[in-house]
Each structure stands twice: as C-alpha cells, then as structure tokens.
Amino acid sequence: MRTQSPRSPDASTVRALLPPGVAILNEPETVWAAMLDGWSAQQLARNLSLSTIVSRRRLAERFRDFAEEYPWAWTVEQVDHFFMELRALRGGSRSTVLGYQNALRMFLGYLTDPTYGWGELCWERFGTHPAQVFHEWNTARHVQDAIGEPGKRPYTRNELEDLFDCADERVVRIRRAGSKGWIPAFRIATLMKTAYAWGLRRNEVRMLDLVDLASNPQARQFNDLGIVYVRHGKAMRGSPPKRRAVLTLPEFAWAVECIEEWLTEVRPLFVAPLATMLWPSERGHGASPIAADSVSRAFNEVKREAGLDDTLDFHSLRRSYVTHLVEIGYDAFFIQQQVGHEHASTTSIYTGLSPDYRARVVNDAIARMAHATTTDSPKEN
C-alpha cells in the first residue's frame, strides 16, 4: 500500500519537459506527450503505485482519442458523450464512471494549475488553454445518493489504493492552495490507514492515545509502534469496554511510517505540547479526541471523491483487514484475537474472499488431488 507526504511534489515542470528555444516538429503531439509525462512524474513524486499511474495515463489517452482533440480543446459536450457511450454501449458500472471522472478531473486539475505553467504555454503556442470540464453538474457524483449494491463487503485491494490515493491527493491539493485545512486532511488520511492496518473500529481508532502505542520486543523494526493497545473496544451490553493488544504485522509496515510522519511532522503543528490524544480535535488545543461524526463526515468526503460505492463504509476497512489476513494465510484464531471477536463465527462473517483467492484455493486442491492420485496408483512391473 502506498503512502504519501503532505509536501508538494517535486514534479517535472514545463520548462524541463519543453526547454525554450528547442525546435518542435509536431507541436501539438509533442506538448500532449509532455503533459502526460509531467502528470506521471507528479503522481510518481507523490509515491503513487506505478499501476495506478499507468492506468490513469491510459484513460487520459483513451479520452483524447475519443474526443479527437487535445486537452486545451476539450469540452463538456465531449465529457457527456464519452460517458454516455461508456454506460449505454459498454455497460460501465456506476463506480467505474465515478472512478474515470475522478481521474480525468485530476488530470485537468494538474494542467490548469498555474504552478506547472501548461496554461501559459498552450496560450502562447495554440491561442487557447486547458480548462476544467468536469464539474458537479455534469458528473455522476450527485446524480443519485446510492450507487452500490445492497450488502456490506470489504474493499478490494484496488479500491483501497484508490481510497488512500484520493486521501493523499487531497492533502497535497489543499496545502498547495495555501489553506491550513491540509492538516485535518492529513489527519483523516492517516487515521483511515491506521484503521485498516490494525483492523480497528471507528471508535477504537479515534480514541487512541499516545500511551496506547508501544514497542514489541519481538519486532523491534517497528520502533514504538509494534503494538497498539485498544482501550475502547466494543463492549458487551452492561459491560465496560473490551481491551486488547493488536500486534503490528510486517505486511503493514507502511502504516508505521505514516503514523511516525504524523507524530513528528504534522501533529505538533496544531496541538499543545502536553496533549496526548493521537487524533486530537481542533478544539481545546488537542485535549479531546476527534469527534465520531467528524471522522464519518471526513471519511465520506474522501470516499465520494474517490468514486467508491456507498456500501463501502468506514467499517469496511476492518472487513478488509480480516479478509486480507485470511488471504495472506494467518491462523484463524490469531485473526480472531487481533480484531477482538468473542467467537470465530463473527470473524467469518467479516471475511469476503476475492475471486482470485478462491480460484487459488480450488487450483491447489485439484493439484493435491492429482498428486495423491499419482502417488497412490500401483506401479507397473
């Protein structure tokens, strides 16, 4: 899983991609290629995965081929026709439409950002400039409230990447705009990753205190984040909150780096020195934790911007944790202890194994059967 710093990306500029004074034969195509390279560099500087960068680049190329125009000539009508064909003729799902629109919106956001200079260059060379043609009134985000199928489920790995990428990109975008809102955006991005990487419920993660983070003598590579002590676990009726210790697993070492960055570089910017809440609210100099409603509201904003199904809620991060531990091969009882379930049957409800995993299980079973048949068959004299 990828993570990302709130620092502005050190992406290639127009001057670096198209040095002044250099003769260009096919000017529009050369500028177009430089735009794609610049956008790829920007995303790479944000530590996004190569697969995400490649898929987004291909989508931009696909839209350019459909529009038969370069970005400085794209229109809202072309947006309408592209997505009408995607839905009506190609059977694209609502979540696919939202994901595509979000990616193309970010591409045009990059091109229209004066920091990179594409608007000025296009105006000098073509007498026009790129404009944002993806708005609230012509995208699928607000067409209807519910876009998913009924029933709760875990995120797929690609959906998790989209969710965390979107959360990270919001931090960079808000900070570059000069707003202090990038700190709360960084807080919710890190909180979401923490909930997934340790399989925590919303209340469990928001109530974490600095004293709940401890080292694990058996896993010193995680420094002071080898164990997360949950003191506000879901309680039985009439009982106090359940406590448990969640071990940090090697597969989630990236989340340790996220929290360390939050603790050392971002959190000190808006809390009093003696505040101990891991995710402090803006009120009272960080003496109280972030409110549950604030977590849900900020999370839903990120999820909608990422174009994900409404059935994928905050608790789906915990479902994903359980599912992925099963797929990795962790012992069922160990998983049950990690998430604090009283009964193994509860843990099984959380599991939504991917088709690829189920296919591997079937293939392994067939291979074992074939091997057993070969081994047990009588040898010919």
Rank of each mutant, 00 (worst) to 15 (best):
V361S: 10
V362Y: 08
P20M: 09
C166A: 10
L50Y: 13
L353F: 00
T347I: 08
Y350F: 02
S348Q: 10
D313P: 00
A88F: 08
R90Q: 15
R57K: 15
W198F: 10
P217I: 03
E342M: 12
R176Y: 05
N26Y: 08
P71W: 14
V143M: 05
V246T: 12
A291E: 12
R176V: 04
A73N: 15
L48H: 08
G21P: 08
W262G: 14
I259Y: 01
T96S: 15
R360Y: 10
E327V: 05
E29G: 01
K193Y: 03
P355M: 11
V271N: 05
E265N: 07
W74S: 01
L89V: 09
V266F: 03
H142V: 03
S51M: 09
R46F: 02
K242T: 11
T3M: 02
G127R: 06
Q337A: 03
G233A: 14
A88P: 00
L86P: 00
N300F: 12
L121S: 06
F164N: 02
P114I: 06
R319S: 00
F252L: 01
P289F: 11
M84H: 13
L160N: 06
M35S: 11
V322A: 14
F107G: 09
W262F: 09
S354H: 07
A272E: 12
M84V: 12
H315L: 07
E342C: 03
V271Y: 07
W279Q: 08
F134A: 01
R304G: 03
A34L: 07
A272Y: 02
V271G: 00
V205M: 12
E204V: 04
S51G: 10
T190Q: 03
M84W: 12
H81W: 11
I188W: 12
T264S: 06
A73W: 06
S239G: 01
G38D: 03
P250N: 11
I290M: 13
G352H: 15
T194E: 09
N223H: 12
W137Q: 04
S296A: 14
V143Y: 01
N102G: 13
W123N: 13
W198C: 13
E261V: 01
E301N: 10
A67Y: 12
T52H: 11
E68Y: 00
R15T: 09
N216A: 12
D331Y: 11
L191G: 04
Q144N: 00
W32F: 15
I227N: 08
L247I: 11
